[in-house]
Design a protein around this nucleic acid. Structure first.
Lengths: 209, 209
DNA sequence: CGTGGCCTACCGTCCGGTCGGTAGATTTAT
DNA sequence: ATAAATCTACCGACCGGACGGTAGGCCACG
């Protein structure tokens, strides 16, 4: 069943408003006005405001996962695979900026079951990066690091771009992707002194009484 | 004039609820119930719901800035200064987790003037890190990088901890701070091939049609 | 002619905020 | 010293309005 024209319009108006004003601050009337129809007509296409939000989040997560996986299929070298994953992640987030921003700030609008569904998808997606980092460590390409923390760090980092990126701004999507890519890879590759620094910090030195 | 007991109670109940349910999903009645008081009495202490939010955000930003600046005063070496800044930032965000989470997710609840006030404070705070990075570049300690992007990246990275950190979890505040610190410093110190990687990505290679 | 796609009209609920009032502590005036 | 005045901290009742959602009707088009 094809998505009808109006259903798609409603969706894109909703994305725009959720992005600009937030989910809770956007009313169904706002969306209707933006779509050029009456409020009640929204409910012909979507059963509730939450379902509208959920469908946006779900398809965004789906598309993101597909996009990254597909690009990963073309590469074998583990460092290059991480680079590709980061690049894909950044590109996706910057080109579909508004949807991704919503996906990272409006989970609050979901009821328990829908919330869990999205979280499950996010976990699966994070798994891609965690596997990549683990693989890199096993192959001796990356330093031994805390995989979970670092995967969060990497994803947060790149995702954040979606909150300040402006297409007409100073830097292009590819330039930003390259900056992140290099920063992350060199952060992961160091053969550093994690332990010593850690114990120095944990020993309760001169700072932080 | 000292902050009265009840005013402080309301404040901390509000922080707890804003953190757990979000600003818009928290009603004044909720806060009143949590404070053991009637709804109307809230308005004796705060003129509006927004003022309550604003006062939380404002004092959090104040305290954060003071804390980081104070710790920075004790160090001169530029790399160590960045390490201290990162460490302070992380520590503050993880120990005052809920306030910081709110400060980074509920700016939407502010009207224009209040919003601008907080953004101004944030800009000033970011300036500390940007100056540090610039200084490091000038001194040849850090690689030449895009200061603005990298400062956003660093702050976002560390701030994100406030959204998943659990005090009773696997890692302590200091361990997490050390992980971030090392990751960031080694990300900044590389003498890398930003330009070549950039042009490779921008040249529209095999990926990303 | 029937049904997909939209409309008008309406409902119950909840929310931020206001109002008038009050018990009791504190300050001031005599 | 005490009575009057004022202030502090709170309460119960209420308001206008917005919101998500529903019921049922209308009408163009296959």
């Amino acid at each position: 069943m094809p998505v009808t024209k109006m259903k798609a319009t409603i969706r894109s108006v909703a994305i725009d408003l959720f992005y600009r004003k937030g989910y809770f601050a956007t009313s169904i009337s706002d969306i209707a006005r933006g779509s050029g129809i009456q409020k009640a007509s929204i409910y012909y296409h979507y059963v509730s405001k939450e379902e509208l939000l959920f469908s946006i989040l779900e398809s965004t997560m789906d598309d993101l996962t597909d996009y990254v996986r597909e690009n990963l299929n073309r590469v074998r070298d583990v460092e290059e695979r991480l680079r590709v994953a980061v690049r894909s992640h950044v590109r996706f987030h910057l080109t579909r900026q508004r949807e991704n921003f919503i996906a990272n700030s409006e989970l609050r609008g979901l009821s328990e079951p829908n919330y869990r569904a999205i979280v499950r998808m996010r976990d699966a997606y994070e798994g891609i990066f965690q596997d990549l980092i683990r693989q890199g460590i096993d192959d001796g390409v990356f330093a031994v690091v805390d995989v979970k923390i670092l995967s969060y760090a990497i994803l947060t980092l790149c995702t954040a771009g979606a909150s300040w990126f402006k297409p007409e701004g100073r830097l292009s999507v590819d330039e930003i992707a390259a900056i992140y890519e290099n920063f992350i890879v060199s952060g992961l590759k160091r053969e550093d002194e994690t332990i010593s620094t850690l114990s120095r910090a944990a020993s309760g030195g001169i700072f932080f009484p």
